Simulated scan of single mutants.
Amino acid sequence: MITPGWFTIIQDRGRKGAQRAGLTEGGAADEHAYLWANKLLDNPMNAACLEVLMGNFEAVLSADALLSVTGADLEFSINGQPAENWSTHPVQAGDRIEFRRPLNGLRAYLGVAGGWLTPELFSSRSVVTREGLGGLDGGPLREHDELPFGPQQATFRRQLAPRYIPDYSSPLTLRLVPCYQHDLFSPQDRRRFSSEEYRISQRIDRMGYRLEGPVITPEVGGIISEGIALGAVQVPRDGQPIVLLRDRQTIGGYPKIGCVSSLGCSQLAQRGPGAPIQFEFVTLESVQAERLLFNRFFAASQWHSSGEELVWP
């Protein structure tokens, strides 16, 4: 590792079932881009990838490998030459890879055939810095770190079709299931929340995104602490919503107006301060159907023998 970047961490799909032990789930902030990084390589869906925040990353390969790059456009290059995003790239020992600066989105995912082979803790390689778990030492990569991986001789090239690639600069409407303490908010506040625009504030991280916009106020200022799901939208006393993401706390006592779909959370994690956000109340059944189709696609689709398109068995 030459330059580790602003905040580059190992992530997989997270520590499933660990919240009962008080451990944060973690996992890739943009699960959609993360899964494509593995799909392009025929990796297991839970193989570890590097999550690179906003670039400023440079490294040299210690062995031949097959890489994939997905997610934000951070000006990826190989030996100083621009390289395609949402693609695979055969590289050789001594090749230099680099992410420079964000052009569209915040987080890029760098996969390697076979996955990055850092130690597993509680059945996951995901880094949660607040708990000091995952990766090499429980934190982001540092200068001179060496990441283990299995050398590969594969040289196939794949480029994802444009229809699968999201535009992280487009307006974002988040699908929200009206659950938790939804009934503690007045009909006027619910209408305001789902019809007016919010903006992402400067206070964002993997734990949650604090928004700025119309104030909404629940009938009570606090509740007995309860378990927190991915996408829960809690409303503290200032009336400004917070969407809780992968590194959220395991329990919390602020009222919550609902829960953003997991796929919506992936899209939110690619937006930066100032980006406009709107909410749309939807049914639990519609969100479940969307997620089941998403899971089915990644689990069952296979690459055509040409390597240029996906087919369903």
Score class of each variant (00 low, 15 high):
Ser306Ile: 08
Arg163Lys: 12
Asn85Gln: 10
Leu184Asp: 05
Pro276Lys: 12
Ile251Gln: 12
Ala59Glu: 04
Leu244His: 00
Glu25Asp: 11
Ser77His: 08
Arg175Cys: 05
Pro313Asn: 14
Glu146Met: 12
Ile242Leu: 08
Leu53Ala: 07
Glu219Lys: 11
Arg130Glu: 04
Arg246Met: 09
Leu40Tyr: 11
Glu146Gln: 15
Glu290Leu: 13
Ser123Asp: 09
Pro273His: 03
Ser170Trp: 07
Arg199Gly: 10
Glu226Gln: 12
Ser124His: 01
Arg237Ser: 14
Ser62Lys: 14
Leu284Phe: 15
Ser262Gly: 09
Leu172Trp: 05
Thr173Asn: 06
Ala21Met: 15
Gly80Tyr: 13
Lys16Glu: 08
Asp95Cys: 09
Gly71Asp: 06
Glu219Asp: 10
Arg163Tyr: 07
Leu50Gln: 01
Val69Met: 08
Gly134Leu: 00
Glu98Ser: 06
Ala232Asp: 10
Glu31Ile: 13
Pro166Lys: 07
Pro162Asn: 09
Ala161Met: 07
Asp64Thr: 09
Leu211Ser: 01
Ala72Ile: 04
His89Ile: 01
Pro102Ser: 02
Leu121Arg: 10
Tyr198Phe: 05
Thr283Met: 14
Ile97Asn: 06
Val233Gln: 08
Ala154Leu: 14
Ser68Pro: 08
Tyr209Glu: 08
Ala275Thr: 03
Asp12Pro: 00
Asp167Lys: 05
Val243Trp: 03
Val233Ser: 06
Asp64Asn: 12
Ile97Cys: 04
Glu219Val: 05
Ala161Leu: 10
Gly222Val: 06
Ile10His: 04
Trp36Ser: 09
Gly139Lys: 04
Arg237Asp: 11
Tyr209Gln: 05
Glu308His: 15
Arg190Val: 02
Arg96Leu: 11
Cys259Glu: 12
Arg100Ser: 07
Gly55Pro: 01
Gly274Thr: 07
Ser305Trp: 11
Ile257Glu: 08
Arg192Ser: 05
Pro171Gln: 09
Ala21Tyr: 15
Gly115Glu: 02
Ile2Trp: 03
Gly80Met: 09
Val69Phe: 10
Pro82Ala: 05
Pro102Gln: 02
Leu147Asp: 02
Leu67Gly: 06
Ser62Gly: 15
Trp116Asp: 00
Phe57His: 04
Leu293Asp: 15
Ser262Leu: 13
Glu120Lys: 13
Gly231Met: 03
Ser123Val: 02
Asn46Tyr: 13
Gly135Tyr: 02
Pro276Gly: 13
Tyr254Gly: 04
Gly208Val: 03
Asp95Leu: 09
Ala289Gly: 12
Asn79His: 13
Tyr180Ala: 14
Ser286Glu: 15
